[in-house]
Each structure stands twice: as C-alpha cells, then as structure tokens.
Design a protein around this nucleic acid. Structure first.
Lengths: 212, 212
DNA sequence: TTAGAATTCAAACGATCGTTCCATGCGTGC
DNA sequence: GCACGCATGGAACGATCGTTTGAATTCTAA
C-alpha cells in the first residue's frame, strides 16, 4: 500500500485532483487522520501543491465542503421554491426537497458518496472553525427549511418542532452516509435503490414529525 | 492552555484517570485528533503510563468503550428481559429498553455525556479494528433487540425492518450525543429533561417504525 | 526490615506531521 | 528569442506523534 493507487486521471487540474483525493480520504480516515502526504500521493501531485493552491489544510477542508455544498444547497432551495409555489403542498413535499438532492449526490457516479460520509463526520466533529464556516455559508438554507416545516406543521410549537427536526436531520445524515446494514438488493438498479431510499426516509421522517 | 487543566482528582487510580481523560478528549478531538500527551497531561500522569497500563493507544480506545458498554448493554438487556416477561408489550416498550439506559448514561453526573459523543464518533468512523471490537463484544445485544423488534412489528418483512432500524439507530445516536439545537429549558431539571427526551425519541422512532 | 515486584519518571527513539524555501520547468506576451 | 509569471519539483524545517528504555520510586509480602 505504499503507492496509494492514484485514482485520479492526470488530465484533470491539480486543484480538482487534490479535492477529489482529499474528499475520499477524509471520508475514510477523518480530517485529522488523513495526512496531506496521503492526499497528494493519491492525487499524484507534489506535496507542496496543497499549500500553494489552498494555503493550508484547514482551508482545503473548507473547499472540499464548498465545492459540493454550493450546488447541493442550490438544488435544495430550488426544490423547496418549487414546492412552495404549488397551490397545495404537505410535509412530504418539504422533506423531499431536502432529502432528494442529498440522496442524489450520495449516489452520484463521481465521488459524491464519499462526500456524504465527510458531511456526517462534520456533524460528529465539534470543530469550531468548521461549524463557523458551515454556518457562515449555509445557515440561510436551514432557515428557509425551518420556516417551511413550521408552515406544514402548524400544530407543533417552536420548541417541539426543533426537537423533531433535530432528530430528523440526524437520522437523514446517518442514513445518507450509508452507515449500517442497508445494502442495495441485487434486483435493483442504483436509480431504483435511490428512489426507494428517498421514499423510506421521507415516509419515516414524516411519520415522526406528524405524530401527535 | 498549556496545562490542559487536570480535571481528575488525584485520588483515583492511574488507569481510571487515564480512561476519564481519554474519553472526554476523544469526544472533543476524535481518536486521531487527541494525542496521548494531551490525555496524560489532563489525567496528570506520566506519558509512559498509557503504554504501561494499556499497551497501546488502540487498546486504550477499546477500553474506553468496554468500561461503559459492558454496563450499558447489561442494563439494556435487563430492561428488554423485563419487557419480554410482561404478558403484553408493544413497540414503545422495546424502544424504551434500548433508549432509556443510554439516555441515562448520556446525562449521568460523571463523564457519561462525553462517552455518548465518543460513541457517535465510532459510528462516523469506519475504523475496521474498532468495528470488529464492537461486533465481537456486543453483537448479541443487537441480535436480541432485532428479534424483539421483529416480534412487535410483525407486519414488516425483514428487509423493511432493517431499513427502519438502521434509521432509528442513527437518529438515536445523533440525538443522544446532544448534537444540534436541543437545549434544556431553564424551568426543567436534568431528570425532567431526560424523561422528556426519552419520550420524544421513543414516540418519534415508534411513529416511523409503525407507519404503513 | 528487607527483598522483590509493581509502578512512575524523565528522556529519548524514529517516524510522520503541516509548512516553507528555493530552484526548476513551462506557457504566454513582447 | 527573451523575459516574465504561474506552476511544480525536491528537500528540508521545527513540531509533534506513539512508543521504548532504564533508572528511580513506591508498594507489598515475608
């Protein structure tokens, strides 16, 4: 295992290859556990390239998040806007706007699956700098969804709603990171598997959120 | 922050002080992120004491888990046995047997709160050695609970049950680690807060598990 | 009291960490 | 062709990592 098998074709840019390798290695070994030497070896670039292009390891971590979260949260907000524009919509619609884009990412042909595991790690870590970065860049997304949830769950007071949204987001993060025992059945395509997963997650979360 | 403020009273044994400090530092910085020098400084013991008493850092991690999980899983199995001995019991009872002991630990006056965060990290990490350790020592607990869940959810086939149990365990781990926004209300005691949390978690999980 | 085991201690080991330096290669405009 | 700026290369920096060593100390039992 001395060569770490450079997975990235060398015709992509240095920055992109570093991001790809960092993402998958962070998913496996964590932020502290994956070294820049592992990352640069996997990306087949020079060790100094990380500090040249990203400044520091800390900033590399941020950029790994930014690359995926910018588009992911755009998709979520677009999906939410489409829901809110409908004449009638319910809890399952709002949940779908949050879940489906993330689940699509977690099953994308590129490294999206690894990224969702990285995302789950970010929740597990209580790293202040990372939390501040995520809050600074994406808190408006959570705000809009919280407001939408409050709209479709008018019988819950604010305290109760937060309780349940907290549990839901934990469950969804966990499930989308593909922790645990769920395996795709052999008679299903990836697409079918993803749709089934979304269906399960939404139904499950909706049941918990709605219950008296 | 050069002294790391030894939190452990020196009248406890060296092994115990190391375990206490390791647990809380692993919760904050992760297994790779917390160094043995931090641990021994916080425990106010010599650096070499870890390798003397535990052999290696890897084994120290295992012992951090063993100390808490042995009693936690005993309590869970005892609670489950009590449920199964009742003439009639339902899903909420089985869930309670799983949730309440863990929630009690997470709110115990000693370092239990930190341990649950460590436990959440163990789920986020895909460390093979750690997963093997947990499986080797505690898989019988999961087996018994899975069987009990199957009993109270006869309308779900095995595949569907696993789906849902996976989501539930993720949600519970997340919630019990006290991630997220839930804060104890000022007008509540710890005990009240714990009971309320257990109630929420059980109701939420039950709703998701039961839904058609 | 004293021999021997158990524990603690300071110090150092080699390895690896993130980062920096500076020379070298390479592409584009003059 | 030449010079300039961006990118990459190898090599080393000081710091910190887990671990080991061997002597000093404390505990225990005869």
């Amino acid at each position: 295992m001395s060569k770490e098998s450079g997975l990235n074709a060398p015709h992509f840019s240095t920055k992109q290859r570093i991001l790809d390798s960092a993402e998958s290695l962070f998913a496996i070994h964590g932020f502290a556990g994956a070294s820049l030497r592992q990352v640069t070896a996997s990306a087949q670039v020079n060790l100094a390239a990380v500090n040249y292009h990203f400044g520091s390891k800390e900033n590399l971590i941020n950029e790994v998040f930014r690359r995926r979260l910018d588009s992911l949260n755009e998709e979520r907000l677009a999906a939410l806007a489409a829901v809110l524009n409908q004449p009638r919509f319910g809890l399952e619609d709002v949940l779908g706007a949050f879940v489906r884009p993330a689940l699509a990412l977690s099953m994308a042909e590129d490294g999206g699956a690894g990224f969702v595991r990285v995302l789950a790690r970010a929740f597990a870590e209580h790293n202040e700098r990372l939390r501040k970065f995520l809050h600074d860049n994406y808190s408006h997304v959570l705000k809009q969804f919280a407001s939408a949830f409050a709209q479709v769950l008018p019988h819950l007071d604010k305290q109760e709603l937060y309780w349940r949204l907290d549990i839901v987001s934990g469950a969804l993060t966990y499930a989308m990171a593909d922790f645990g025992v769920i395996k795709r059945r052999a008679d299903m395509s990836e697409r079918q598997h993803r749709d089934l997963a979304a269906e399960h997650l939404i139904k499950f979360a909706a049941a918990g959120l709605k219950s008296a």
